[in-house]
Amino acid sequence: MTTTEVLIHDLVEKHGKSRNALMPVLQGVVACEKFLSEEAMIAVARELDLSAADVYGTASFYTFLDTKPRGKNIVRVCKTISCHMQGKDAIIKAIENHLMVKVGETSPDKKFTLLTANCLGWCHKGPVMLINDEVFPSVTPEKAIEIIEEFAKKTI
């Protein structure tokens, strides 16, 4: 078994072999691998006795269950109105320039994927960004770059 298959097997052991376990299992894979590869979706389908199309259809419904390859860190900048009003455009531009990517792309060193997100639930402290599961409220363009640099250093 590949490491992905082992991971999924263990997740299924933990959450149970039923359809109700699909979300936690997919979330578990994304937590480790950042996205759901073809291999991962097939392995999940096999373990839970579902069709691969069904797993793909379900996963692709959820913004955080990416089915496209992603970098080691996923940066999501809130683009909804409060953060818009508080300057999310400047944050995005700064990160784009710094990582030399556009929204939706992954940096050449595969360390970062830059995405936008809908309201993250910190509207009183915008603009907000999420890196992986961590929240960074009230960021400025400078602070955003600093934070990203921190992550770059931590990521091998």
Binding site: L22, M23, Y62, T63
Partner: peptide
């Protein structure tokens, strides 16, 4: 996993049921 509509009660059940 990032879907606003899952706050709608029946969508939330669907989501919990792995759909």
């Amino acid at each position: 996993s990032g879907a606003y509509v899952c706050g709608e009660e029946s969508a939330l059940f669907e989501s919990m049921e792995g759909k």
